[in-house]
Design a protein around this nucleic acid. Structure first.
Lengths: 236, 236, 236, 236
DNA sequence: CATGAATGAGTCTTCATTCAT
DNA sequence: AATGAATGAAGACTCATTCAT
């Protein structure tokens, strides 16, 4: 996401009448993320978005059918952004399924993906998902692919490692829970639960499940300096 | 939560002008939960709430300072409701810390707590938490107590079981992640991820971590009929 | 229509919070007529209407579903107002079909019905009728009843008078044309074509068609002082 | 009016950058008529007009001072179109005043003039005439000439035929009423009142007024097949 | 206590007009 | 000449809150 601050806004304006349709759309989507992160979906108005984008109000309805469409496109962008991220990381991890699973998992807690801003936006959309079919569809598509990939990798590990009683589907479900749950905790308790802790807990879990693939040392290494021992500390 | 259906609404009205302040407040809080579950926080208006409650619009501002206060009271009610539930379950579990930890965990996925309606409300509040300090405070208070209790129980188990490398705080964090993550998945994929599955996955995890306390069989038992094998199935 | 002038508006406001729903609705319909007469349908906004009514903008959407509904109700009111007027006049005309036909015809040019304000409103609706089925339905219902009545009266006169080659339907069509055409001319050329002239021309036509029922003198009497001899004079 | 269909639109575009100012103006006026006929004046935007014309939005403000001017020019075009039509018909009718009057009258109901599209546009402008002096001026100019011509012809016939009590001005007024009234009825009840019927009723009236000039047979001939006997049938 | 009509600030959306290309 | 992205004023509609009854 291009970093659009009020001062950057002026630059956008300078880009002015030349900017291509695609550029403007992305500008508005970025501004929407800023706005939702700051004011929530219900506090996000055409005015807040265009103010962040440094553009005039009329533009939202020019580049998107309406505000609702802008919100959906924003969610879609976030989903594709995330999916593209872990796909790239898996590819970069080589052929080892263990490395791939770890790469996928750690992608969730990478600063580019797991910023407070983006988490806030995600949970705003989750809140609305219950009664917005369009949101659910977008999220489900992303989750399905992620889950399927997860499942495939777990299955390979189980086969490779001869892990007797394990069920790949169970583990994929648990991983999914950890990803989402850690996200929520990072969002609500940024001082008590960090990305680093999340990665460490994730590795610990993988070490426990697939001991012959994940080195216990690694897990405990990630674990080491428990930044905030004791209570979860003050929330945001 | 009292079950407020439109037909029940009429009954409320019949209770009429004599109802005590406390009754009216609870009636409005229940209606707020209904409304948020159905329309989300942003779609919840004084009108939707009072319609669910079968009362007149003027009443919200009579019994609560304003709509915002009503929302906060609703969140507080949910938090206390949940806390009371697991406290009672722990008490009922006797003196065994393992049974207590399990009771606390399973409380999260008990139908009274983990209904689709309530989950929807929770995630609506989480969505807004980012920029509503009042919500964060209410949620944090509840979470802290839960986490502390969790931590204490894990510590006891570690001591009892002589589990070498384990760190109670790590496990409490992971449990917290599983609780929240499973909630999200139950909410978004009610057909793909059930309360039953959530309980099974939770027990599996506990078996893995505290094998000398939780019987592996139990875990696999809860695991048994994987209702929807394969893909996560259609969302809501 | 109650005469709502800006000064009267204040009185409405005084009537204030007590006014019954029916009264408020009529107040808004009256204000809509004022507004359309002054600014046309396209120039009629929620603001102009409520300003004429001396009420706040929010009220339109409280008493009517939306602005469109208010417009339809206004047209319906005008149609019913007109229909009620000629029905009453026919009744007052006794049993003579000639007197009844004349009464119906003259009703169109009675000051209560054929005011510049109301004509302006009628032709605004006619302009939109082409692509608003709702308007057409309302107008058609009124017109059908009027035409049927007209037809029946003409048939009686033909039978009574032994008018050989006449066809009641033809005459009803011609009368309908005269009513509408004279309305348009009165509206556009108030100085060149008056209600009085319209009545006179109507009677002339009736005298020509039904000479044994309508006295030629009457017609020429109504004709007498041709206020603006020569050209049609300046428009509005 | 050139027939501008979407496919023709592309051709216009092809005519492209070389088209003369006059051609572009007419193209826009034709598109305006299409647009008003379909969406009404209030629904006619720069976008609907340019879409019908197959041109870009910027052009309206390039070829006309503003949208209002385009509307006035469109009305002026319609008025001149109509005037030119009956003038040509009168000329073609030879020297007989009766034939000329009839020619003028029938011009109103000629398919080129009395199309549903054009009627719709006329009545849209009449609706706005009340508060748009510019429209009234344009309409009045056309009407005055028509009325004067009508008056002259009637005067000649009265003199020729020795019609005793007749007043040319009265008849011109009545004719004007019939023209406008029949137009309205054709527009609103295309299935119940046709151009053919309108011509027949007009001739019937002329036969009645000027029996020695207009053959009764002709009138009854035009009358003959009353397409829809009985009620006026469904509106548009 | 309770009601619900009334208020008006705030939102989304439309659209005539401008202007850099 | 022509284009169409950009602007922002103005419109319809929503809804928390007030208050007379």
């Amino acid at each position: 996401m291009t970093n659009v601050t009020p001062s950057a806004a002026r630059t956008n304006k300078a880009a002015g009448r030349t900017a291509s349709k695609e550029v403007r759309r992305q500008q508005l989507i970025d501004a929407t993320i800023e706005s939702i992160a700051k004011y929530g979906i219900s506090g996000t108005t055409t005015t807040t978005v265009t103010r962040f984008a440094g553009l005039s109000i009329g533009l939202i309805n020019f580049h998107f059918k309406n505000k609702e469409t802008l919100l959906e496109e924003t969610l879609r962008y976030l989903a594709q952004d995330h999916t593209a991220h872990w796909r790239k990381r898996i590819k970069a991890a080589g052929d080892d399924p263990a490395a791939q699973l770890r790469a996928q998992g750690e992608s969730h807690f990478h600063p580019d993906i797991c910023s407070r801003k983006k988490l806030a936006v995600w949970f705003n959309f989750y809140g609305e998902a219950q009664y917005r079919a369009a949101y659910r569809r977008i999220v489900a598509e992303m989750d399905d692919e992620r889950w399927d990939t997860s499942l495939g990798l777990c299955a390979k590990l189980i086969e490779q490692g001869g892990y007797g009683g394990l069920n790949a589907s169970d583990i994929a479900d648990t991983l999914e829970g950890l990803y989402d749950g850690f996200w929520l905790n990072i969002m609500i308790y940024p001082d008590g639960f960090s990305r680093k802790k999340a990665r460490a807990r994730l590795l610990q879990y993988l070490c426990m499940v697939f001991p012959r693939h994940f080195d216990a040392l690694e897990g405990s290494a990630g674990n080491a300096p428990s930044e905030t021992p004791g209570a979860r500390a003050a929330p945001i």
